[in-house]
Design a protein around this nucleic acid. Structure first.
Lengths: 100, 100
DNA sequence: TTGCTATTTTGCTAAATACCGAAATAGCTG
DNA sequence: CAGCTATTTCGGTATTTAGCAAAATAGCAA
């Protein structure tokens, strides 16, 4: 998932994801956390959307963004697994589970 | 930390890291895996080095690159922890590191 | 020394990216 | 309808990036 890694390369976008971890936020609420113009943030939303990392839900004139955490997981776990970045027990446990 | 994410944003560099996971490789050996000119690869090595993701050891005329896995860990674990990316069921989605 | 090998540095494009202000879109309300 | 709000799209610039060929560096060996 190259688009996910590209999306994560920018600190503003990582911060947006972090904000959305706590709760869904509108574009304006997110923009309030940054010293950047709204069109700039809108561009970041588009990058995150095209990587499928966030989802937009429009109600009236407000667009609420929601974190798509499973996409982040799907993209990063291959990396984590390739480099054994977590305890190997996890994989062990999973294999045990499989046998049942 | 930002430099690590920037380094990971390019698929060629992710592939280089993946190659170095198995064993240390010289610049030329790495270059043989790609259809890119050597100066281009050399530029990628420089990016990975400045992110401290790899280490260069020169013996004679050969430069051998070594993966600095702890730097990758240190950079990614905050992300993994922030988003609680360790649920074991997701190991089902394991796929080749840079597939698509 | 000369030549060969491994690799980087230089100098240059083309493409991508981040940013902004202004304009456009779209929904709401009086 | 007109005006207000939320957000995006448009058009532009400045910076960064990925790529290459050619030149430079550096070690080795005849």
């Amino acid at each position: 998932m190259n688009s996910v890694y590209k999306a994560l390369a920018d600190p503003t976008r990582r911060k947006i994801l972090e904000l959305l971890r706590d709760r869904d936020l509108s574009a304006g609420e997110i923009a309030a956390h940054f010293d950047l113009a709204k069109p700039t943030l809108s561009g970041h939303f588009a990058v995150l959307k095209s990587a499928d990392l966030i989802q937009a839900d429009k109600v009236g004139t407000t667009i609420t963004y929601h974190l798509n955490i499973s996409v982040l997981e799907e993209a990063l776990l291959p990396l984590i697994n390739t480099f054994n970045l977590t305890s190997p027990n996890l994989l062990f446990w999973r294999e045990d589970f499989d046998e049942q």
